[in-house]
Design a protein around this nucleic acid. Structure first.
Length: 112
RNA sequence: UGAGUCGGCCGUGCGGUCGCGCAUAUUUUGUAUGUGAGGAAAGUCCGAGCUUUACAGGGCAGGAUAACAGCUAACGGCUGCCGGGGGUGACCCCAGGGAGAGUGCAACAGAGAUAUACCGCCGCGUGUAUUGCGGUAAGGGUGGAAAGGCGAGGUAAGAGCUCACCGCGCCCAUAGGUAACUAUGAGCGCCUGUAAACCCUAUCCAAAGCAACGCUGACAGUGGCAAUACGCUUGCCCGGCGUGCCACGAAAUGCGGCUUGAGCGCACGGGUGACCGUGCCCCCAGAUAGAUGACCGUACACGACAGAACUCGGCUUAUAGGCCGGCUCACAAC
RNA sequence: GCAGAGUUGUCCGAGUGGUCGAAGGUGCAGCACUCGAAAUGCUGUGUCGGUGACGAGCCGACCUAGGGUUCGAAUCCCUAACUCUGCG
């Protein structure tokens, strides 16, 4: 995941929240929508509800590692946003990766 | 051995594979090599560096601190010491100047709260149910606090009214100490508490903060007021200065600031100590939505609190567990 | 990152160091009014612990938490926790 493929602007997140599709799990919430860039782009949200700075950083790292592991199998041309929930703090990145790839497969976002 | 007290240190380690930030090298957008969170990075409670703005000069207001001596770039921090309090002791705690400069406050209770007379006691007059005047502050009760304590003399009854002893304060002398202060003696006084109430005394303080600020590039309108006026100048005033000024809207970044510093470690010397001096050695994060994760092996105590954001010195708060040292008390043995 | 404000009963909120568990409104309960309701009027009503009988009554604690100053703290001072606001 390159740095220029990360979502940074507020309007990009608002576009995902209002128009994108939403899949919820106990550990995270995944939003996705077809983007204009033709690449796979990702934004991560870890709100104050998760905990202190250490816990928010931990959540962001675990999500980044899980997404990078799934990256070769994902269809290009979509923007994603993962919102961390409190349960993610007790999981490892392989567990999160399994949940993520299962949800991606259900919604037809994987290269077969 | 048990109990206690004070101080210091560590904060999972080692090896391998993939992945991330930065720097360097080579090359060209890949690969190597190095390096990569803390004792509190936290809270933002103090103090500084640094930057910008302001600043002829002065005054008022405002804020902070508070025994004494030192350390320090500075401090409300630290060290030593003095005084007070607690503990058998090691040791711990203290916003610890001034109430004898002035003003205010002290609810309720109580006769009375900085001054007094309810019940009492005593004297005089009327007079014998009692009542009036005067003296007194020993006894009673109230309260956090009631006019230093106790005894003797004294008196109509009493009272530091007088005296002895004791307690406290001020001041003087002598001795010790750099000093705060301590000890002894003489004199004077004892009229409460509160200054984290106003205040007085001494010392210090211009304001804001890296979202400061500088550079490069781009864009550029609307409205209001105006010479008897408007504006700037520290919160205000004196004083001084200027001639267009003010408000709103729009806007997006990029680069610098950004890490070599009151720096870390070791040795020697000085000092009771905080700390200081000299020599040698080292370079140890610098991101910009924000870098440390995943898997495997192995050891154990199975890993707490917790993530740099301009940088330092402190304070305060959170913290699983482990290690080391000094000292005190009790018991036992020698 | 920096700067600032606040925390009082179910909720909103007032509160000079003392007469304060604490005004007022809201909510809830009861009564009146009405055929019935709404509106209106009146009355009552905080939580926890102890004693008591699960009641009445009595006592104690509680104004975010912990210390301090004071005879006495919701109020003054310090520390912490939480909430909120502003600054590109």
């Amino acid at each position: 995941m390159k740095r220029e493929d990360k979502l940074k602007q507020n309007w990009e997140f608002r576009r995902l929240y209002s128009r994108g599709k939403c899949i919820a799990t106990p550990a995270f919430v995944l939003y996705f929508i077809k983007g204009k860039s033709g690449r796979v782009r990702l934004g991560i949200t870890a709100g104050k509800k998760i905990g202190c700075a250490v816990k928010r950083n931990r959540a962001k790292r675990v999500i980044t590692a899980a997404f990078d592991a799934c990256l070769p199998e994902i269809k290009t041309g979509y923007d994603f946003c993962v919102v961390a929930r409190g349960r993610i703090l007790s999981l490892t990145s392989t567990q999160v990766k399994n949940m993520l790839s299962e949800k991606l497969l259900e919604n037809g976002l994987k290269i077969l």
